[in-house]
Amino acid sequence: MKTITIVSVVDVVGALTTDSLENNIYLLDNNKNGGSSELATETLKTKVNKGDTLLWTIMPMEPESYSAIANIEIDKAVCEPKQLTYEGSDVTYWSATIKKDFIEAPYSIHFKLGNKEHVVKPNKNSRPALIGNK
């Protein structure tokens, strides 16, 4: 069972100027050797197995800009991401454990970007996905 980190690198200023995440987000994980593909795109395919733990974090390209993951929507039969806080800080991340074997589970990440609550959803036709082992 692995622990896999999925990082959303976000050009916050780019996303705010265009009011879109298109071309302003790069999703990466640390499981390319394990079969993940489409790294550094908004359609990252993360290869997972039952029992793996996933951690979603965010990295704004401009360190001064505010960014956070607001929600992750995915088939709850596959996993149920929960927002957690690093102990001793107010910085959050999202985590989930893969419950079962499956084929593919597309998901959406909602972000809060900038100095006000600004939720941006990725395009429904170009979503990232978890790729199972079934």
Partner: peptide, 9 residues
């Protein structure tokens, strides 16, 4: 990529 959040102090 395998790291705690870069936003942390």
């Amino acid at each position: 990529i395998a790291s705690i959040s870069p936003i942390l102090p």
